[in-house]
Amino acid sequence: MTHRTSIGRLILAALSGLALSACTAQHSEIPKSICGTQVHQNLTEPLLRGTGKVSEWHTAGWGERETNWCIVRVGKEESLRMKFAWHSDTMDPMKSASSNKNVTGLQDPIQMQLADNAALGDDGAIATTRCRTKPNNHFTLALKLNHRVGVPHLRRDIEKFMRAYMPATMKAVGCTHP
Protein backbone atom coordinates (compact mmCIF):
# COMPACT_ATOMS: atom_id res chain seq x y z
CA MET A 1 0.00 0.00 0.00
CA THR A 2 1.36 3.38 -0.95
CA HIS A 3 1.64 6.37 1.35
CA ARG A 4 -0.90 8.23 -0.82
CA THR A 5 -3.47 5.37 -0.51
CA SER A 6 -3.17 5.19 3.28
CA ILE A 7 -3.58 8.99 3.61
CA GLY A 8 -6.65 8.78 1.34
CA ARG A 9 -8.15 6.05 3.54
CA LEU A 10 -7.47 8.07 6.69
CA ILE A 11 -9.18 11.13 5.20
CA LEU A 12 -12.13 9.02 4.05
CA ALA A 13 -12.46 7.45 7.52
CA ALA A 14 -12.31 10.87 9.20
CA LEU A 15 -14.93 12.32 6.84
CA SER A 16 -17.18 9.28 7.37
CA GLY A 17 -16.92 9.78 11.13
CA LEU A 18 -17.88 13.45 10.79
CA ALA A 19 -20.82 12.62 8.53
CA LEU A 20 -22.02 9.93 10.95
CA SER A 21 -21.88 12.29 13.94
CA ALA A 22 -23.72 14.99 11.98
CA CYS A 23 -26.48 12.52 11.03
CA THR A 24 -26.91 11.24 14.58
CA ALA A 25 -26.89 14.66 16.28
CA GLN A 26 -30.12 14.96 18.21
CA HIS A 27 -32.14 17.48 20.07
CA SER A 28 -31.06 18.66 23.47
CA GLU A 29 -33.77 16.88 25.46
CA ILE A 30 -36.88 14.90 24.55
CA PRO A 31 -39.88 16.29 26.48
CA LYS A 32 -41.96 14.00 28.70
CA SER A 33 -45.14 15.39 27.22
CA ILE A 34 -46.09 16.54 23.74
CA CYS A 35 -48.91 19.04 23.28
CA GLY A 36 -50.21 18.52 26.80
CA THR A 37 -50.14 14.71 26.86
CA GLN A 38 -47.50 12.62 28.54
CA VAL A 39 -46.01 9.95 26.30
CA HIS A 40 -42.86 7.87 26.63
CA GLN A 41 -39.87 9.72 25.19
CA ASN A 42 -38.82 6.64 23.16
CA LEU A 43 -42.05 6.97 21.16
CA THR A 44 -41.60 10.69 20.53
CA GLU A 45 -37.92 10.75 19.60
CA PRO A 46 -38.18 9.08 16.15
CA LEU A 47 -40.76 11.68 15.08
CA LEU A 48 -38.66 14.70 15.98
CA ARG A 49 -36.12 15.67 13.34
CA GLY A 50 -33.39 18.24 13.57
CA THR A 51 -31.11 19.49 16.27
CA GLY A 52 -31.65 21.93 19.07
CA LYS A 53 -34.17 22.64 21.77
CA VAL A 54 -37.66 21.12 21.48
CA SER A 55 -40.42 23.73 21.87
CA GLU A 56 -44.19 23.97 21.34
CA TRP A 57 -46.54 26.61 20.02
CA HIS A 58 -50.29 26.40 20.71
CA THR A 59 -53.21 28.25 19.17
CA ALA A 60 -54.75 31.02 21.26
CA GLY A 61 -57.36 29.67 23.63
CA TRP A 62 -55.63 26.28 23.81
CA GLY A 63 -58.14 23.73 25.12
CA GLU A 64 -61.05 26.16 25.08
CA ARG A 65 -61.92 26.07 21.37
CA GLU A 66 -63.41 23.35 19.19
CA THR A 67 -60.24 23.15 17.12
CA ASN A 68 -56.75 23.56 18.54
CA TRP A 69 -53.33 23.33 16.93
CA CYS A 70 -50.02 22.45 18.50
CA ILE A 71 -46.77 22.81 16.56
CA VAL A 72 -43.61 21.14 17.84
CA ARG A 73 -40.30 22.61 16.73
CA VAL A 74 -36.78 21.29 17.06
CA GLY A 75 -34.47 24.26 16.97
CA LYS A 76 -36.02 26.64 14.43
CA GLU A 77 -37.54 23.88 12.27
CA GLU A 78 -41.14 22.68 12.54
CA SER A 79 -40.98 18.94 13.17
CA LEU A 80 -44.65 18.03 13.62
CA ARG A 81 -48.06 19.55 14.05
CA MET A 82 -51.16 18.21 15.75
CA LYS A 83 -54.77 19.18 15.32
CA PHE A 84 -57.22 18.48 18.14
CA ALA A 85 -60.85 18.84 17.04
CA TRP A 86 -64.19 18.46 18.80
CA HIS A 87 -67.19 18.08 16.50
CA SER A 88 -70.81 16.97 16.59
CA ASP A 89 -70.79 14.47 13.73
CA THR A 90 -68.74 11.51 12.58
CA MET A 91 -65.90 11.92 10.11
CA ASP A 92 -63.99 9.54 7.88
CA PRO A 93 -60.23 9.75 8.51
CA MET A 94 -59.49 8.15 5.13
CA LYS A 95 -61.26 11.04 3.34
CA SER A 96 -59.28 13.60 5.35
CA ALA A 97 -56.09 11.61 4.70
CA SER A 98 -56.50 11.96 0.93
CA SER A 99 -53.36 13.42 -0.64
CA ASN A 100 -55.33 16.34 -2.12
CA LYS A 101 -56.03 17.65 1.41
CA ASN A 102 -53.26 20.13 2.18
CA VAL A 103 -53.84 20.26 5.96
CA THR A 104 -54.24 16.60 6.84
CA GLY A 105 -53.35 14.80 3.61
CA LEU A 106 -51.10 11.81 4.25
CA GLN A 107 -48.60 9.90 2.12
CA ASP A 108 -49.97 6.47 1.15
CA PRO A 109 -52.72 6.30 3.82
CA ILE A 110 -54.19 3.00 4.98
CA GLN A 111 -56.96 2.30 7.47
CA MET A 112 -55.75 1.55 11.00
CA GLN A 113 -57.54 -0.06 13.94
CA LEU A 114 -57.43 2.66 16.60
CA ALA A 115 -60.25 4.40 18.46
CA ASP A 116 -63.44 4.29 16.36
CA ASN A 117 -61.70 4.92 13.05
CA ALA A 118 -58.19 5.91 11.98
CA ALA A 119 -55.90 6.44 9.00
CA LEU A 120 -52.14 5.93 9.03
CA GLY A 121 -49.66 7.28 6.51
CA ASP A 122 -45.90 7.50 6.07
CA ASP A 123 -45.98 11.08 7.38
CA GLY A 124 -48.83 11.18 9.90
CA ALA A 125 -52.10 9.76 11.20
CA ILE A 126 -55.69 10.76 11.90
CA ALA A 127 -57.83 9.07 14.58
CA THR A 128 -61.39 9.82 15.65
CA THR A 129 -63.65 8.57 18.42
CA ARG A 130 -66.99 9.24 20.05
CA CYS A 131 -66.79 11.02 23.41
CA ARG A 132 -69.10 12.15 26.10
CA THR A 133 -68.50 15.88 25.94
CA LYS A 134 -70.54 19.01 26.38
CA PRO A 135 -72.08 20.09 23.06
CA ASN A 136 -69.88 17.96 20.78
CA ASN A 137 -69.61 14.21 20.98
CA HIS A 138 -66.69 13.37 18.69
CA PHE A 139 -62.96 13.97 19.10
CA THR A 140 -60.39 13.78 16.29
CA LEU A 141 -56.62 13.94 16.55
CA ALA A 142 -54.48 14.52 13.45
CA LEU A 143 -50.69 14.22 13.46
CA LYS A 144 -48.67 15.49 10.51
CA LEU A 145 -44.88 15.33 10.29
CA ASN A 146 -43.08 18.14 8.53
CA HIS A 147 -39.99 16.43 7.16
CA ARG A 148 -38.03 17.36 4.12
CA VAL A 149 -37.84 15.16 1.05
CA GLY A 150 -35.48 12.24 1.57
CA VAL A 151 -36.44 11.56 5.20
CA PRO A 152 -37.29 7.88 5.55
CA HIS A 153 -40.93 6.92 5.92
CA LEU A 154 -41.90 6.64 9.56
CA ARG A 155 -45.16 4.66 9.38
CA ARG A 156 -44.19 2.15 12.12
CA ASP A 157 -42.95 4.88 14.45
CA ILE A 158 -46.10 6.94 13.87
CA GLU A 159 -48.29 3.91 14.57
CA LYS A 160 -46.51 3.15 17.86
CA PHE A 161 -46.77 6.80 18.89
CA MET A 162 -50.49 7.06 18.04
CA ARG A 163 -51.37 3.79 19.82
CA ALA A 164 -50.02 5.35 23.03
CA TYR A 165 -50.83 9.02 22.39
CA MET A 166 -54.51 8.81 21.31
CA PRO A 167 -55.79 7.03 24.46
CA ALA A 168 -53.58 9.18 26.71
CA THR A 169 -54.91 12.35 25.04
CA MET A 170 -58.49 11.14 25.36
CA LYS A 171 -57.88 10.68 29.08
CA ALA A 172 -56.12 14.06 29.38
CA VAL A 173 -59.01 15.94 27.75
CA GLY A 174 -61.68 14.00 29.68
CA CYS A 175 -62.98 12.12 26.66
CA THR A 176 -64.80 8.99 27.80
CA HIS A 177 -66.18 6.61 25.21
CA PRO A 178 -69.98 6.27 25.43
Rank of each mutant, 00 (worst) to 15 (best):
T2C: 13
R4P: 00
G8C: 02
G8M: 04
I11Q: 09
A14T: 10
S16P: 00
L18H: 00
S21E: 00
C23N: 10
Q26S: 15
Q26D: 08
P31N: 06
K32G: 13
S33M: 12
S33D: 13
S33V: 01
I34T: 08
C35T: 02
T37L: 13
V39C: 11
V39L: 12
H40L: 11
Q41C: 01
T44F: 09
T44A: 15
L48T: 07
L48W: 12
G50M: 14
G50S: 12
S55Y: 00
S55N: 09
E56W: 01
E56K: 02
T59R: 06
T59W: 05
G61L: 09
W62V: 02
W62P: 01
G63C: 13
E64A: 13
E64W: 08
E66F: 09
T67C: 04
V72E: 12
V72D: 03
R73I: 03
E77V: 03
E78D: 12
M82A: 06
M82T: 05
S88W: 09
T90K: 10
M94P: 01
S99N: 04
N102S: 07
N102P: 07
V103F: 14
T104W: 14
L106Y: 03
I110N: 14
I110Y: 05
Q111F: 07
D116G: 06
N117R: 12
N117C: 05
N117D: 15
A118G: 05
G121P: 05
D122F: 02
D122A: 15
D123T: 04
G124W: 11
I126H: 07
A127R: 03
R130V: 00
T133H: 12
N136R: 14
N136W: 10
